[in-house]
């Protein structure tokens, strides 16, 4: 099979499926913590494990972390952080892990907790579940992520936006959640390929087999996905007039409120990303020394 080096293949832990790949970047999704070590060993035999992403209904503080998980790059999608007391007690263990924690943005407490975790050196982020968002709170989190003068761990998706932003390109931060078919492809146990996690769940496959991945560039679904943004300009949606279009691309079209709160947030995030670029440009070049 031709390798598409830039794609990470996202799949469940299925040893039979994994054995068909060689030299690929593989990301495993799971709904439990069982078999984490086995996953690590099996995938890394002939491929590279990008991370294991666990989607669970347990709060962070109710998870019992095992010491030997510290070799496994882990991403956790959790409903909440849990009690602060327990979190502080767990910190020494968490800090040994190679860990990212994502909480749903719809709960205001989660937004505070993401900042809490980041302030203590834990890579954390929000993800957008399909529920009403407190845009003001998200704005505060974005401001913290981009402007805080105190050191902290990255906060997603703002870290991604700041670090990947280029002024002459749009930026799809769905990549943070593996939903960018230019970087991630989702494969089911039968080897069929979907462009996003949602499409995989819905059984909508772009390719009947992973063996066809090298035809992706010409694949109609793939092309349509990458040109779907043009609909906004054909239909002249509110998003097409948004000053922050380039880093959002209409993700919140269905939930635009009268104050255009999403626009207010992303305009500030865009300015933060530009500041970040500017600061990095001004860093002095390294000078070779003995």
């Amino acid at each position: 099979m031709n390798k598409l080096k830039r794609h990470t293949l996202v799949m469940n832990f299925d040893e039979n499926l994994i054995s068909k790949f060689n030299g690929e970047n593989i990301l495993i999704t799971s709904d439990s913590f069982n078999l984490l070590n086995r996953t690590y060993d099996v995938v890394n035999q002939n491929n590279k494990l990008v991370n294991v992403t666990v989607y669970t209904q347990s709060a962070l503080t109710s998870i019992k972390f095992l010491e030997n998980w510290n070799r496994i790059p882990l991403a956790l999608y959790l409903p909440s952080m849990g009690s602060y007391r327990m979190f502080f007690h767990m910190l020494p263990v968490l800090r040994q892990m190679n860990l990212r924690i994502y909480l749903p943005v719809s709960n205001n407490q989660n937004i505070i907790d993401v900042q809490m975790m980041a302030s203590l050196g834990i890579f954390a982020g929000i993800y957008f579940d399909k529920k009403p968002i407190n845009w003001e709170k998200v704005k505060e989190l974005a401001f913290y992520s981009q402007y805080s003068k105190s050191q902290h761990a990255p906060v997603e998706p703002f870290h991604h936006i700041s670090s990947k932003y280029k002024s002459d390109e749009t930026l799809d931060f769905n990549a943070v959640y593996y939903n960018d078919p230019n970087q991630f492809l989702h494969i089911n146990n039968e080897g069929k390929v979907a462009l996003t996690y949602q499409l995989l769940k819905e059984g909508k496959f772009a390719l009947e087999s992973y063996l066809q991945i090298n035809t992706l560039k010409e694949n109609e679904d793939f092309v349509n996905y990458n040109t779907a943004w043009q609909r906004h300009f054909l239909d002249k949606t509110t998003c097409s007039y948004c000053p922050a279009w380039r880093i959002c691309m209409g993700k919140f079209e269905s939930s635009i409120d009268a104050e255009k709160s999403c626009q207010q947030l992303f305009v500030e995030v865009l300015e933060g990303a530009e500041n970040h670029q500017e600061k990095n440009k001004r860093k002095p070049e390294k000078v070779w020394q003995l």
Binding site: M116, K149, S150, Q151, H152
Partner: peptide, 14 residues
């Protein structure tokens, strides 16, 4: 509040 505390700590840290 926790938000204000974190702000204060960052402020002093910086």
């Amino acid at each position: 509040t926790w938000e204000n505390l974190m702000y204060i700590v960052d402020f002093f840290d910086a």
